[in-house]
Simulated assay, not measured.
Amino acid sequence: MGRHIRSGDRAIWTEQVGRGPDVLLIGGLGDTVESWQFQLDGLADRYRLTAFDNRGAGRSPMPDGPTTVEAMADDAAAVLEALGIASAHVAGFSGGAMISQELALRHPDVVRSLVLQSTWPAMDPHLSQWVRFIHWLAGAAPSERAFLEGFFLAIYTPRAHNDGTVAAVIEEAIAFPHKQSPEDTQRTLDAFAVHRTLDRLDRISAPTLVLAGGIDPTAHPELGRAVAERIGGAAFEVWETESHQPFQEVPDRWNARVDAFWREVEARTGTPAPRDAADDAWSPDRPPESARPVGTS
């Protein structure tokens, strides 16, 4: 079960499962702990995973005043501090990948490694125009369902739309009791739209894996490549048949890839590798079962 941690006057909803090396999971626009359900279920036998609701999403209230990626990165650092975690492997997707970049820049000592899914160093004109459209859609859509149906066209593959995956995600999102308001969606979009790390990425020294979906129409592969080229030693991979959120659409493949990356980092730094489930008889705490994660991007 999750709980709120306190950072000054901020309340941040946080959940933690598993045992092993620490991992911090950072979601994107409007995303909550539930967006990482496949990772919380699939990796807790090897890692201690911490996920949280970003400010203004789910059970974490939006504070007054401007919303910035810098402030969201400080929230992530506050979660680690409150839980007594000195450093963690950090994985973020979409806007959460921007928060992860900023976390590594502002709080480098807490980041053991970075996995950046569907990321960018600064929005290009195409992505900027898409964000302006979603900003408009959040306020103009006649219903939550209409907003999600339009938004998810650019988030999930045609495969996921055609096999019923997206319909199931929409039903879970509509049933989810802790919704992000359209106004908070727009404030978060505004923060992502103006944020740039382009000229600072060479300061990141943490081992980094950048993943891009080959058919992602938003954070297209050229943007991910631009991030990887500016972080020394970063690995870059394009998954040609995937879109914005392969960690939800092909979670077994995604989990295996990041597990291999984290094991490589642990081996390189001389830290014992995470246990396999069959290594001994201990069993980690598990989150409640969920058929599909609830999330946006």
Rank of each mutant, 00 (worst) to 15 (best):
A91G: 08
R46S: 13
F133D: 07
W130Q: 12
A73F: 00
M62L: 11
A76M: 05
V79D: 12
Q101T: 15
M62K: 01
G92A: 11
R132V: 05
L127Y: 12
L105P: 02
L49I: 12
E144N: 02
Y47D: 11
H107E: 02
S60W: 01
L105V: 04
D124H: 13
P63S: 06
W130P: 01
A71P: 00
P121Y: 12
V111H: 10
V115W: 11
M72E: 11
L105E: 02
H135P: 07
S94M: 05
R59I: 11
S118A: 14
G95F: 14
W120D: 05
N54V: 02
D53E: 03
Q129T: 15
T67C: 08
W120G: 01
A44N: 10
A86N: 13
A88Q: 04
A141C: 10
S128H: 15
E81Q: 15
A76L: 05
A78Q: 09
G92S: 03
R55M: 02
G58F: 10
V115S: 07
Q101C: 08
V111Y: 00
A141H: 13
Q117S: 09
W130C: 06
G42K: 09
P61A: 00
T68W: 14
L43C: 09
R48K: 15
I85E: 10
V131C: 05
G65I: 02
L80H: 14
P142Y: 12
G42M: 11
G92I: 06
V79K: 00
T50R: 13
P121Q: 14
I134Y: 05
S60N: 00
V90A: 08
A122P: 08
L83C: 07
Q117D: 12
V69P: 06
L116W: 04
